[in-house]
Structure formats: structure tokens, C-alpha cells
Simulated assay, not measured.
Amino acid sequence: MDYTLEIDGTPETVPGGTGLLLLHPSTGETDRIDTDFLKTDTDNFLVISTRTTAREVRQKLEYYDVDEERAEILDTLSIERGYSRRSSDTVHYVAAPDDIDGIVAHIDGFLDEHDGKLRLSFDSVTELAYYAGEERALEAVERILDLLDERDAVGLFHLSEEPHDTDTVDEFRALFDGVIDLDEDGSVDADFSKID
């Protein structure tokens, strides 16, 4: 199964099982790329947020006119920070941003419960590494990429280059089929050479 991409500089389609890394200098322009990824050629999608709360994710989806009926949100921040929260059919929580097993289990359940074209956005791997450490974040990404491959889904993973050294960025980069490199001016340089 192929998935359409509507992101500048990327192939028109990628096969199911593809993991995409969004490398960025700051969070400014990532929302546009993220929402373009989520609203194209998708039956259901899951946003895993280690950077913002479910309420903020909903505001982003609404602002960029993404169909929220197809959305599920996994909020990893609200419980640990003591924010008020309301679980629903589409908003779920884990105890803390470093609850890797809880995050992976929820992704597994989402992919298991839905049919058709499924996408996920992980915003952000940098925040996950901040809370859980870089080694555990790398391991978590590998586990999630395996799930995408098994279920013919696709995922976009946000990584800010600034907090990580070059070797760590290269380790993350090596895990992915495609890399979207976002410049500060909003231009995109994409490398999809691993995809035939």
C-alpha cells in the first residue's frame, strides 16, 4: 500500500512501513509539514505528543483544518504536570513522557484497532530523549518503526538538531527511510535515497 505525500521536495508516494524523520532547527515551521502529512491520504492518524498537551494538539489540527474525526491523540505530559484531563475515545494519556512501554503499547493498540491507511506523528523525539535519555529514545523509535513496518503504516518523527550532537543526530537519521531537513527559512531538503 502506497501513501501520498504532499510535502515539498519529497516523493509523491511512499510505501507502507515507511518512517520519516523531520529534522528541524526549531518548532516554528514544523506544524505546517506535520499537518500536511496527517491530512493527506489517511483514514486514521495518531499524534503522540511529548512536547504539548492534547488541548494544544487539537488547536493545531483545527488551525490547519485537519479532520479531527480521524484523529487520536496520546498526551504524555498532562498527568505528570498535574493538568486537568478528560479521557475520551480520541484522547488518551500515559503517566509521563518517559513511559516508553506505555507509549509503544498505545501505538500498537491504535494500529491494531484501525484498518486502512494509518499515519502517526511523533512530536517530538527530542523531548522524549530529554525525559528518557538518548539511548532509550533510540530504542523506542526502533520499536515504533518495527510496528509501522508490520502494519503497513507510515510515521513522521520530529527531531530538533540543536540539543543533540552530530553523532546522535546521525544515529537517529540512520534509522529512517526518508529524512526531511527543514531550514530556518522554511525551505526543505529531503533525502529518500533509501527508498527504491
Rank of each mutant, 00 (worst) to 15 (best):
E127K: 15
D196S: 12
G82M: 15
D75S: 05
A153W: 10
H114T: 08
D189Y: 05
K60V: 04
A105G: 03
Q59A: 11
A140D: 05
G102C: 03
D191K: 04
F37P: 04
E127N: 15
G19A: 14
R85D: 06
H164P: 04
V141W: 07
K60H: 07
D8V: 00
V91W: 06
S87K: 15
L175V: 02
V14F: 11
S124G: 00
D101W: 01
P25W: 06
R173H: 10
E135W: 02
R55C: 01
T42P: 03
S160Q: 11
Y3R: 00
L74M: 12
E184K: 10
S49M: 10
R86M: 13
V125F: 14
K194R: 15
D99C: 07
D8Q: 12
E134H: 13
V104T: 14
P25E: 13
I73Q: 11
I144A: 02
D183E: 13
L182I: 13
D152P: 08
V47M: 11
K39V: 01
I79N: 05
L61D: 02
G82C: 14
L156D: 04
S88W: 14
E72C: 09
R143I: 00
T10W: 00
R119W: 02
S78A: 15
K39C: 00
E139L: 07
L148H: 01
D31G: 14
E171N: 08
G82N: 14
V141G: 00
L21F: 12
D146T: 05
F176C: 05
H106G: 04
H92D: 07
G9S: 14
R81N: 10
F45C: 05
D89C: 01
V57K: 11
K60N: 02
D115I: 12
P163V: 03
V94Q: 00
D41M: 11
H158T: 00
S26N: 13
D98I: 03
E171R: 13
